[in-house]
Every structure is written in structure tokens, then in C-alpha cells.
């Protein structure tokens, strides 16, 4: 394993880390106490998955970077997350739709990663698979409830879908890193997850009385390091304490 393994693992690890950071912004702000707790719990699981993957990435890279160095000391162009997860939270429906569009991917990815050729990655994925299955249950329920809810909630979900849909294709576009990672059996080929993803997403959108939008030009580049400006602000917020107090511990 080498560079392609590091790149491929960062794509998943960073996606988890950035989404966890987005979700934690809801802590104390969600529309109901139960949902506040739910989002904090989901963020905690996803952050745990990110920590495991970043730690492992640092070990494989062999340059002495631990999870903290990778999380706090890289700038946006060094991040490899999909663009979907860095999109702003919007209203609660927007956040839950983004969550569902992520969970529906994660719930296909983790069971496949559980048979990764890297035993540590396989171990992380074995735990994450169970967590993702629980998360997607929660987020699908909310997409259906709000999509098939009041006129107001339906319109908000339509608007959220319109905004987020172009970001859902990126996770399934293979490049040379993905091909190399698949050849070494580290990870499944991203495109191989698409049929199951589409099946689930279309079924939930149908239940939610939301139309499946036509395929747009998929927004892409996050997995190669080209991000929207949203990520820069998110990282500034996440990294400021660590960078202001290098080496601090308590």
C-alpha cells in the first residue's frame, strides 16, 4: 500500500470528519430536544469513524501524522471529503436530507469495507456498518415525514433536494486512486455502490412524495482537493483552538 491508500482513506475519513463537524453545529439548536440528542449522537458515531480512519491513514502514510495532525493541521486543499458534506446546514429538513443522502452511501460502503484487505480498516468498518444502518433509519424517517408533511415542509424539502442533488454523484465517480484502491482490495470501486444507493434513495423519495430530479452535471472535485469556500470557514472554526495553542494538552 502507498499513496493511493492514503488518498483513498482520506476521502472517506475526511467526509466523516467534515459531516460530524457540520452536525455538531446543531447541538443546542435543534427544533426538538430528541432531535438535538439524535444529531449529537449521530455526529459522535461519525466522528468516531473518522478518528479511526484518520489514525489508520497516518499509520499507513508513515510520516508521523496522527489523527490530530491530520484533522487540525491541514488546509482545505488537502482535504479529500465529498462536497456534499461541506454544504451548509440550512434548516432542519435540509440537514436531514443531506444526512440521508450521506447515510444511504455510508450504509452501502461500510459493509463492503468490512472485508477490506487492511484489517484495521475492516475492523473500523465492521462497527460503522451497524451504526450507519441505524442512522439511515432515522434520516429516512425524517425525509419521509417532512417530504410528505405539510405544504410548507414539502416545499422546503423540494428546495433542499434541488440544492443538494447535484452533490450526490461525486461519491460514485471513479478515478485512478479509486481504481488502485480497488485493485489492492482496500476499498470497493465507488461506482459499484451506485445501483444500491439509487435504489434506496429513489424508494425513500417516492415515500416522501418528492420527485427524483434528473441527473445534472455532478458537482465534483472535493475528493481531489477542490472545495467550495464553505469548507474553509468550517475548518477555521474547527481548527482555531488547536492552531492557537500548538501542543496544548489537558
Amino acid at each position: 500500500m502507498g499513496d493511493h491508500a492514503v488518498e483513498a482513506l482520506l476521502r472517506v475519513g475526511d467526509s466523516c470528519l467534515v459531516l460530524a463537524q457540520r452536525l455538531t453545529a446543531w447541538c443546542g439548536h435543534a427544533p426538538a430536544l430528541e432531535e438535538d440528542i439524535a444529531l449529537a449522537n449521530i455526529a459522535l458515531d461519525i466522528l468516531g469513524q473518522a478518528r479511526g480512519l484518520l489514525t489508520r491513514t497516518g499509520e499507513i502514510e508513515g510520516a508521523g501524522r496522527d489523527e490530530d495532525a491530520l484533522a487540525y493541521l491541514r488546509d482545505a486543499p488537502d482535504y479529500r471529503n465529498v462536497l456534499l458534506v461541506e454544504q451548509p446546514n440550512g434548516d432542519y429538513g435540509h440537514t436531514m436530507l443531506r444526512q440521508f443522502l450521506f447515510d444511504a452511501w455510508a450504509v452501502e460502503l461500510w459493509p463492503r469495507l468490512a472485508s477490506s484487505s487492511d484489517p484495521v480498516v475492516a475492523g473500523i468498518a465492521g462497527k460503522a456498518a451497524k451504526e450507519a444502518a441505524y442512522h439511515v433509519r432515522h434520516s429516512s424517517t425524517w425525509v419521509v415525514r417532512l417530504g410528505d408533511g405539510t405544504e410548507e415542509s414539502h416545499h422546503r424539502m423540494l428546495a433542499a433536494l434541488d440544492m443538494l442533488w447535484p452533490y450526490t454523484g461525486e461519491a460514485f465517480l471513479d478515478d485512478e486512486v479509486d481504481v488502485a484502491a480497488a485493485e489492492s482490495a482496500l476499498m470497493p470501486l465507488p461506482s459499484s455502490l451506485l445501483p444500491a444507493y439509487r435504489h434506496r434513495v429513489e424508494a425513500v423519495l417516492a415515500d416522501a412524495t418528492l420527485p427524483v430530479p434528473p441527473d445534472p452535471w455532478w458537482q465534483r472535485g472535493g475528493r481531489q482537493g477542490s472545495h467550495s469556500e464553505h469548507l474553509t470557514y468550517l475548518l477555521a472554526d474547527m481548527q482555531v483552538v488547536h492552531r492557537a495553542h500548538p501542543g496544548a494538552s489537558w
Binding site: A43, L44, D45, I46, G48, Q49, G52, K127
Partner: peptide, 8 residues
């Protein structure tokens, strides 16, 4: 072994 990935 942890119960959940993010068990604090």
C-alpha cells in the same frame, strides 16, 4: 473493545 465508534 468499544461499544460504539465514538464512545467517549
Amino acid at each position: 473493545t468499544p461499544t460504539y465508534s465514538g464512545c467517549p
